[in-house]
């Protein structure tokens, strides 16, 4: 059943991608092969392979349980937040928090997690900024 759903989603994707490709205007001097041709070919291939999956399904995998989903969603969101927090909060603060959070979800005690976070952010900051001469954001709030 899972595979059927996946195949349906992929078919929709192939259709959408194909449609978007089909709408592409070619630039000046369109030749034998236009910018939409290769994408159209791929949309067709994806559709064929998805149909094959629809027909030849595998048994369903055992899905994550609810608490596992909780962990996954928590970390995924935290990654995205971290991405946008880096510049305003600065590398050291943002990285300490993020690393500590991941460490904690992997089973560290809070103090251990904080230690990992502080250690990782300081060592990496020193390594990148002083060792490799690659600049990292200091943080808007420290300016």
């Amino acid at each position: 059943m899972n595979d059927r759903i996946a195949a349906a989603v992929l078919l929709l994707l192939a259709g959408y991608y194909g449609f978007e490709a089909w709408r592409l205007e070619s630039g000046f001097g369109s030749g034998v092969v236009e910018p939409k041709d290769f994408p159209l070919l791929l949309a067709g291939a994806l559709a064929v392979f998805s149909l094959a999956i629809m027909v030849r399904t595998d048994p369903d995998p055992s899905w994550f349980r609810l608490p596992q989903w909780g962990n996954i969603v928590l970390l995924t969101i935290s990654f995205a937040v971290y991405a946008y927090l880096l510049v305003p909060a600065g590398f050291i603060v943002a990285t300490t928090l993020e690393t500590a959070l991941v460490s904690w979800r992997f089973g560290a005690k809070i103090w251990q997690a904080l230690l990992v976070g502080i250690g990782a952010s300081l060592v990496l900051y020193a390594l990148f900024v002083f060792g490799l001469d690659i600049s990292l954001p200091v943080g808007r709030m420290f300016r």
Binding site: F79, A80, Y82, A83, Y84, L86, V87, F91, T95, E98, T99, A100, V102, S103, W104, F106, G107, A108, Q112, A113, V116, G117, A120, S121, L124, F128, I134, S135, L136
Partner: peptide, 26 residues
């Protein structure tokens, strides 16, 4: 709990240090 956070942090820092783009990280 030491190793995995390090993998995450290194992944993000490596990409950010070069591209300087939060969009890329997202």
């Amino acid at each position: 709990w030491v190793l995995m956070p390090l993998v995450v942090t290194l992944s993000f820092v490596g990409v950010y240090a070069v591209n300087n783009s939060a969009f890329d990280l997202a």
